[in-house]
Protein backbone atom coordinates (compact mmCIF):
# COMPACT_ATOMS: atom_id res chain seq x y z
CA UNK A 1 0.00 0.00 0.00
CA UNK A 2 1.20 3.48 -0.89
CA UNK A 3 2.83 5.31 2.02
CA UNK A 4 2.58 9.04 2.65
CA UNK A 5 6.27 9.43 1.83
CA UNK A 6 5.87 7.67 -1.52
CA UNK A 7 2.85 9.86 -2.29
CA UNK A 8 4.96 12.94 -1.52
CA UNK A 9 7.74 11.74 -3.83
CA UNK A 10 5.17 11.13 -6.59
CA UNK A 11 3.86 14.69 -6.17
CA UNK A 12 7.22 16.46 -5.98
CA UNK A 13 8.96 14.30 -8.60
CA UNK A 14 6.11 14.50 -11.10
CA UNK A 15 5.71 18.24 -10.64
CA UNK A 16 9.41 19.01 -11.10
CA UNK A 17 9.75 16.69 -14.10
CA UNK A 18 6.75 18.08 -15.98
CA UNK A 19 7.62 21.65 -15.06
CA UNK A 20 11.07 21.20 -16.61
CA UNK A 21 9.59 19.70 -19.78
CA UNK A 22 7.08 22.56 -19.97
CA UNK A 23 9.79 25.20 -19.55
CA UNK A 24 11.90 23.53 -22.25
CA UNK A 25 8.98 23.46 -24.69
CA UNK A 26 8.10 27.05 -23.80
CA UNK A 27 11.64 28.24 -24.53
CA UNK A 28 11.55 26.50 -27.92
CA UNK A 29 8.11 27.95 -28.71
CA UNK A 30 9.18 31.47 -27.80
CA UNK A 31 12.56 31.34 -29.53
CA UNK A 32 11.66 29.41 -32.68
CA UNK A 33 8.01 28.42 -33.17
CA UNK A 34 6.10 31.62 -32.45
CA UNK A 35 8.52 34.01 -34.25
CA UNK A 36 8.29 31.79 -37.36
CA UNK A 37 4.51 31.27 -37.28
CA UNK A 38 3.74 34.91 -36.58
CA UNK A 39 6.34 36.56 -38.85
CA UNK A 40 7.81 38.30 -35.85
CA UNK A 41 10.32 40.22 -37.95
CA UNK A 42 7.44 42.00 -39.72
CA UNK A 43 6.23 43.66 -36.53
CA UNK A 44 7.04 47.28 -37.36
CA UNK A 45 6.12 50.48 -35.49
CA UNK A 46 2.67 50.60 -37.06
CA UNK A 47 1.88 47.05 -35.95
CA UNK A 48 3.17 47.90 -32.48
CA UNK A 49 0.88 50.94 -32.35
CA UNK A 50 -2.03 48.79 -33.45
CA UNK A 51 -1.30 46.25 -30.71
CA UNK A 52 -1.14 49.04 -28.12
CA UNK A 53 -4.50 50.38 -29.29
CA UNK A 54 -5.91 46.85 -29.28
CA UNK A 55 -4.99 46.57 -25.59
CA UNK A 56 -5.82 50.12 -24.59
CA UNK A 57 -9.35 49.93 -25.98
CA UNK A 58 -9.95 46.40 -24.72
CA UNK A 59 -11.09 45.17 -28.15
CA UNK A 60 -10.83 41.66 -26.68
CA UNK A 61 -13.72 42.62 -24.39
CA UNK A 62 -16.12 42.09 -27.32
CA UNK A 63 -14.17 40.48 -30.18
CA UNK A 64 -12.04 37.38 -30.33
CA UNK A 65 -8.69 37.24 -32.08
CA UNK A 66 -6.83 33.94 -32.45
CA UNK A 67 -10.05 32.66 -30.86
CA UNK A 68 -9.37 34.54 -27.62
CA UNK A 69 -11.51 37.24 -26.08
CA UNK A 70 -15.23 37.68 -25.53
CA UNK A 71 -17.91 36.23 -27.76
CA UNK A 72 -19.96 39.35 -28.45
CA UNK A 73 -18.44 40.53 -31.72
CA UNK A 74 -16.80 38.80 -34.71
CA UNK A 75 -13.52 36.89 -34.71
CA UNK A 76 -10.87 39.17 -36.26
CA UNK A 77 -7.91 36.90 -37.03
CA UNK A 78 -8.64 36.81 -40.78
CA UNK A 79 -10.81 39.93 -40.97
CA UNK A 80 -8.37 41.67 -43.28
CA UNK A 81 -8.93 39.09 -45.99
CA UNK A 82 -12.60 38.50 -45.17
CA UNK A 83 -13.78 42.13 -45.19
CA UNK A 84 -11.06 44.08 -46.92
CA UNK A 85 -9.41 47.37 -46.07
CA UNK A 86 -12.27 49.73 -47.00
CA UNK A 87 -14.80 47.94 -44.80
CA UNK A 88 -12.48 47.91 -41.75
CA UNK A 89 -11.72 51.59 -42.28
CA UNK A 90 -15.44 52.36 -42.35
CA UNK A 91 -15.95 50.44 -39.08
CA UNK A 92 -13.08 52.21 -37.31
CA UNK A 93 -14.13 55.70 -38.42
CA UNK A 94 -17.94 55.47 -38.20
CA UNK A 95 -18.92 58.88 -36.81
CA UNK A 96 -21.67 57.55 -34.54
CA UNK A 97 -19.95 54.28 -33.70
CA UNK A 98 -20.38 51.17 -35.83
CA UNK A 99 -23.67 49.30 -35.58
CA UNK A 100 -24.41 46.09 -37.42
CA UNK A 101 -27.51 43.89 -37.38
CA UNK A 102 -28.65 45.32 -34.05
CA UNK A 103 -25.35 45.20 -32.16
CA UNK A 104 -23.45 48.38 -31.34
CA UNK A 105 -19.71 49.01 -31.20
CA UNK A 106 -18.18 51.64 -28.93
CA UNK A 107 -17.61 54.95 -30.73
CA UNK A 108 -13.90 55.66 -31.14
CA UNK A 109 -12.21 58.87 -32.23
CA UNK A 110 -9.14 57.35 -33.82
CA UNK A 111 -6.68 59.58 -35.62
CA UNK A 112 -5.56 58.66 -39.15
CA UNK A 113 -2.29 57.37 -37.72
CA UNK A 114 -4.15 55.19 -35.23
CA UNK A 115 -6.44 53.79 -37.92
CA UNK A 116 -3.35 52.96 -39.98
CA UNK A 117 -1.81 51.27 -36.93
CA UNK A 118 -4.88 49.10 -36.31
CA UNK A 119 -5.01 48.20 -40.01
CA UNK A 120 -1.34 47.22 -39.95
CA UNK A 121 -1.94 45.12 -36.84
CA UNK A 122 -4.89 43.27 -38.43
CA UNK A 123 -2.93 42.83 -41.66
CA UNK A 124 -0.03 41.31 -39.70
CA UNK A 125 -2.46 39.05 -37.84
CA UNK A 126 -4.02 37.99 -41.16
CA UNK A 127 -0.76 36.35 -42.22
CA UNK A 128 -0.02 34.38 -39.03
CA UNK A 129 0.04 30.60 -39.16
CA UNK A 130 -2.37 29.36 -36.49
CA UNK A 131 -2.32 25.64 -37.28
CA UNK A 132 -5.47 25.86 -39.39
CA UNK A 133 -7.53 28.24 -37.24
CA UNK A 134 -10.07 29.60 -38.00
CA UNK A 135 -11.36 26.55 -39.90
CA UNK A 136 -12.94 26.79 -43.31
CA UNK A 137 -16.68 25.92 -43.21
CA UNK A 138 -17.05 22.27 -44.16
CA UNK A 139 -20.61 22.49 -45.52
CA UNK A 140 -21.34 23.86 -48.98
CA UNK A 141 -22.97 27.30 -49.09
CA UNK A 142 -26.76 27.11 -48.57
CA UNK A 143 -29.03 27.44 -51.61
CA UNK A 144 -30.38 30.98 -51.93
Amino acid sequence: MLSKKQAKIFFLGGTILFMLIFIGMSVHSLMVGIPKNTNDSEINDQVKLGKQLWDKNNCMGCHTIMGEGAYYAPELTRVYTRRGEAYIQAVLTAPEGWGFRGRKMVKYDFTEEEVAGLMAFLKWMDKTDLNGFPPEPSLPAPLQ
Binding site: T15, F18, V32, I34, L130, F133
Partner: peptide, 22 residues
Protein backbone atom coordinates in the same frame (compact mmCIF):
# COMPACT_ATOMS: atom_id res chain seq x y z
CA UNK B 1 -2.28 17.29 -6.34
CA UNK B 2 0.42 15.14 -7.96
CA UNK B 3 -2.06 14.07 -10.65
CA UNK B 4 -3.13 17.70 -11.05
CA UNK B 5 0.35 18.86 -11.95
CA UNK B 6 1.18 15.75 -13.93
CA UNK B 7 -1.68 16.57 -16.31
CA UNK B 8 -2.22 20.29 -15.76
CA UNK B 9 1.26 21.69 -16.49
CA UNK B 10 1.55 20.28 -20.01
CA UNK B 11 -2.24 20.61 -20.34
CA UNK B 12 -1.49 24.33 -20.77
CA UNK B 13 -0.80 23.24 -24.34
CA UNK B 14 -4.52 23.34 -25.18
CA UNK B 15 -4.24 27.13 -25.12
CA UNK B 16 -1.39 27.00 -27.62
CA UNK B 17 -3.11 24.97 -30.35
CA UNK B 18 -4.30 27.92 -32.41
CA UNK B 19 -2.55 30.98 -31.04
CA UNK B 20 0.65 30.95 -33.03
CA UNK B 21 2.54 28.18 -31.20
CA UNK B 22 4.29 25.24 -32.90
Amino acid sequence: VGLTFLSGILGTGHHYYYTGGP
